[in-house]
């Protein structure tokens, strides 16, 4: 039955800068099955947020340009779609949860007004109906005394509460796909646990699919069904969550898993690291970019490795030096 809600095919996104056009997302492909949670993990600057924002075409303008590929949402390609179609999709069929609850909410409007906005626009509710519905939404995301909170301003709420409001806005129109861009990064661990729990519960109730972007492998392990590992603008590995943790194939995934500080690592022992750092976006090689970081030389830097399926549903960028799949 599992139909794919979203298929991203060879997506390419670039930014026009003073030093020319820089490709931030370089041929990214993955699929999101109905009702599943797909995690996108990678270090800062790997293009995970740009990938997400390209799906809903909310890139900074005029610098951000989608230069190629397809984003097929429920059978229709969103790339090249007209503004009308996109207005109908964004906030309605695709809900977005942004990272900073501080900046995602408008400080001069009441919570209720911000929640009502998409309900009035997409569902055609009257102002009064939308206000009532907003109260219900706040209750759904676990905000105490919602009838009072609905007429408050964002600054009157704590960080965790604000993030709940952002989630309520994203879920207002019962979207088929939720894109959550680092939804818990700015929050404390205890509040993070609350929010992840809430997301899971709501996803179960609505049957939505979720794309969860994070740099925290712990969060991935606890919430995702599928994992997409990104490095330097590309997907280096994609697999079901158990495979990523139990049987990682790419050297970068292995390095990332090894360098995490875990509770059971012996105290004060030397931590595993990935040497060096990601190259600047302007210096990316056409070939394997993890080889570039590891200061390898030769052909692997010249030719982009093939992205291939090495086991069922387990895809990897098959660099001969970074994997066993040449």
């Amino acid at each position: 039955m599992s139909e794919d809600v979203l298929v991203v095919n060879n997506l390419q996104t670039a930014f026009d800068t003073d030093s020319g056009r820089l490709t931030a997302v370089d041929g990214v492909s993955f699929t999101v099955p109905a009702g599943k949670t797909v995690g996108i993990v990678g270090e800062s600057g790997c293009g995970k947020s740009v990938t997400a924002m390209s799906i809903v075409q909310l890139l900074p303008q005029p610098a951000g340009v989608i230069t190629g590929g397809e984003v097929i949402f429920k059978g229709a390609n969103l790339i090249g779609a007209d503004d009308e179609t996109l207005y109908g999709v964004r906030g309605n069929e695709i809900g977005v949860i942004f990272q900073e609850p501080m900046t995602a909410l408008n400080p001069v409007h009441r919570i209720g007004k911000q929640l009502s906005e998409s309900l009035i626009l997409h569902k055609g509710l009257s102002k009064k109906e939308a206000w009532e519905e907003s109260i219900e939404l706040l209750e759904m995301v676990g905000i105490p005394s919602p009838e009072m909170r609905v007429s408050e301003y964002p600054h009157q709420l704590s960080g965790g509460m604000r993030q709940r409001v952002v989630i309520a806005i994203a879920l207002a129109c019962k979207p088929d796909l939720i894109i959550a861009d680092e939804p818990t990064t700015a929050l404390d661990v205890t509040v993070q646990a609350q929010i992840l729990d809430l997301l899971k519960k709501l996803q179960k109730e609505h049957g939505s699919s979720v794309i969860l972007i994070t740099h925290d492998l712990g969060v991935i392990a606890e919430t995702c069904d599928e994992v997409v590992v990104m490095y330097a603008g590309r997907v280096v590995e994609q697999a079901p969550v158990e495979n990523i943790f139990k049987n990682p194939q790419h050297a970068y995934t292995k390095g990332l898993l090894a360098s995490m500080t875990k509770l059971e690592t012996p105290r004060k022992s030397e931590l595993k690291t990935i040497p060096n750092m990601v190259a600047g976006i302007a210096d990316f090689v056409p070939g394997c970019r993890f080889c570039q970081r590891m200061e390898q030389e030769g052909m692997t830097l010249e030719v982009r490795p093939e992205f291939k399926e090495v086991a069922k549903d387990h895809w990897v960028e098959a660099c001969p030096l970074c994997t066993d799949h040449a």
Partner: peptide, 14 residues
């Protein structure tokens, strides 16, 4: 106890 229990564990089988 609550703080420790809130740490996400990087093991999907747990």
């Amino acid at each position: 106890k609550a703080l420790i229990s809130a740490i996400p564990i990087p093991d999907p089988t747990v």
